[in-house]
């Protein structure tokens, strides 16, 4: 069979969702952000909620998420996205409101905001990208950087005496009464991406059921920050990140 006979509109089984804009993403090749953006966009398309979704972008690499998902967006000050989301959702309960935050934004400067939004049980979705490094500012230590991991501010590896321990903030948030769904996912292969999509969909659905906060961590790569090729970074993540940040649901009620 000739390829020309296969490549026809009626034979499409996968194409870019129209909720993703046509802008070329500024992310480095192989960056996990792109996959997660795509998954969120696909969930929005499948649920038919493009006109009812408000996204809140962080400070960090994902600050420009608003250029890629064709929905209404707020851009938050560093770490404050859950506070914005709190008011946005309380004043607009008919909207699906989600924040999209990295590890520096959510687990360092924004610890108070995420803790209290989750503890109040705000009916929002929080998508947390944990790649154990500050990407945008050039690869410094994040709260989630692993012990021994080399970054621009831990050039000899993270040392607990000097830098403290990697923060398992997702485990902390799972303890709070206000969270209804807390899960840790990844996006490095087809199976993990499909699981992630199910998790994001569940989180979005929860947010209309007054069940509390849904929190989806995605363990991802920063191949530029880690100084690896994208494929090697995925392997390093599986070997080093997953043992410390095990995947799976921590809470689902």
């Amino acid at each position: 069979m000739d390829i020309k006979d296969i490549i026809k509109p009626e034979n499409v089984v996968y194409s870019k969702t129209p909720v993703l804009s046509d802008a070329i993403m500024h992310y480095c090749p192989g960056c996990t952000h792109g996959v997660v953006h795509k998954v969120i966009a696909e969930v929005i398309e499948e649920m038919g909620i493009q006109d009812k979704t408000i996204g809140i972008s962080p400070v960090g690499c994902a600050v420009f998420a608003y250029n890629y998902l064709n929905i209404d967006w707020e851009q938050a000050a560093h770490g404050r996205a859950p506070a914005l989301a709190t008011a946005t959702k309380r004043l607009n309960p008919d909207k699906y409101v989600f924040t999209y935050q990295g590890d520096g934004d959510l687990a360092s400067i924004g610890t108070a905001e995420v803790m209290h939004a989750c503890n109040r049980g705000e009916n929002i979705v929080i998508v947390f990208i944990n790649n154990a490094i500050y990407g945008m500012t050039g690869g410094q230590m994040a709260p989630t950087t692993l012990l021994g991991q080399v970054t621009a501010t831990t050039p000899y590896g993270r040392d607990a005496k000097l830098n403290g321990y990697p923060l398992k903030i997702t485990e902390l948030l799972a303890q709070l009464e206000g969270t209804c769904y807390v899960t840790r996912q990844s996006a490095q292969n087809p199976a993990s991406v499909r699981k992630l999509k199910k998790a994001i969909r569940k989180a979005f659905e929860n947010s209309m059921m007054e069940k509390g906060t849904s929190f989806v961590e995605v363990v991802g790569t920063c191949n530029s920050g880690w100084k690896m090729s994208p494929v090697k970074a995925n392997k390093w993540m599986e070997e080093n990140m997953f043992p410390f940040y095990p995947l799976g649901d921590m809470k689902d009620r």
Partner: peptide, 24 residues
């Protein structure tokens, strides 16, 4: 191209959503 089964794995993991998959 003769190997492709249109399984969509490539498009699913593509961070830049640049792959369209066809299957017959």
């Amino acid at each position: 191209p003769e190997n492709c089964t249109g399984c969509t794995n490539c498009a699913t993991v593509c961070p830049d959503a640049v792959i369209t998959v066809y299957r017959v």
